[in-house]
Design a protein around this nucleic acid. Sequence first.
DNA 1: TCTAACTCCTGTAGTGACTACAGGAGCAAG
DNA 2: CTTGCTCCTGTAGTCACTACAGGAGTTAGA
Lengths: 141, 141
Amino acid sequence: MFTIGKASEQSGVNIETIRYYEREGIVPKPGRSAAGRRLYSPDEIATLRFVRRCRDLSFPISIIQTFLSLTEQDDRSCGEVKVLAENHLDEINAKIENLTRLREALLSLSANCDDGTAACPMLDSLMKDGFGGDKSGQNRL
Amino acid sequence: MFTIGKASEQSGVNIETIRYYEREGIVPKPGRSAAGRRLYSPDEIATLRFVRRCRDLSFPISIIQTFLSLTEQDDRSCGEVKVLAENHLDEINAKIENLTRLREALLSLSANCDDGTAACPMLDSLMKDGFGGDKSGQNRL
DNA sequence: TCTAACTCCTGTAGTGACTACAGGAGCAAG
DNA sequence: CTTGCTCCTGTAGTCACTACAGGAGTTAGA
């Protein structure tokens, strides 16, 4: 059994984040020592590592909770996992597209931005009435 | 002069967001009617629109505040704007790169994920000890 | 045995940029 | 005069943490 510091080291999850996961019920509560310190089994550390890897893949916590419950009841979990992973991939692709469009917009705006004039052409065109811009608000990162 | 509803329509900024910007001092407080309702001039609406466009370009509020103060004192603002825009572009490019790597990782993980087995190979490899994964935590969106 | 440094505990608040809601008041049209 | 719309303030929730205060236990060396 390992203290929270060791569990953090071995799983790659920040100590504060481990306690947060426990508070939120994302991972089960570990046992405690006589003095009230958390004690983690290798399996519990593996779960923490799993959560971290999923977060590194940018899965939201809600999906990770689904994954964790699927690993317990192992009937046909794979199909569900694939669907969740594909939806997530779609989101990632959409974000990449958005960012790419955004980059183009910024590049063309800042291109005129080094003539010696006092008023900045970039700020100017962002202020003007005629400028396009999307009203969707979907461009957020 | 326009009420907050009209200002929202014309600027594309949500009513609640306009009040939030005011609370946080991001835009100046507008005048009020006798009954205490906010009244916006065309210029104030233009400022809201400017903020929205910058947000659409994913500039953080802190940078937008710098932009707004630069538009008031107009000496040599362009150089500063260009630097801020270029830093922002670098961040966007970094995000695109991260997401692209992440997509590859997810694709290769989910590729094996449709054989008819009960245990999911994707979840399996995320659980295993030997799996790589980055410890940097920089993959977050 | 003492002490310093370290780790751990709980609880709370802060992050960014909003969004949602409760509970009330004004205002415009029929 | 009523119905429905817009507006007001203030507070709390979102997501996934992160930071800090103030205290208690633990470990290693002198």
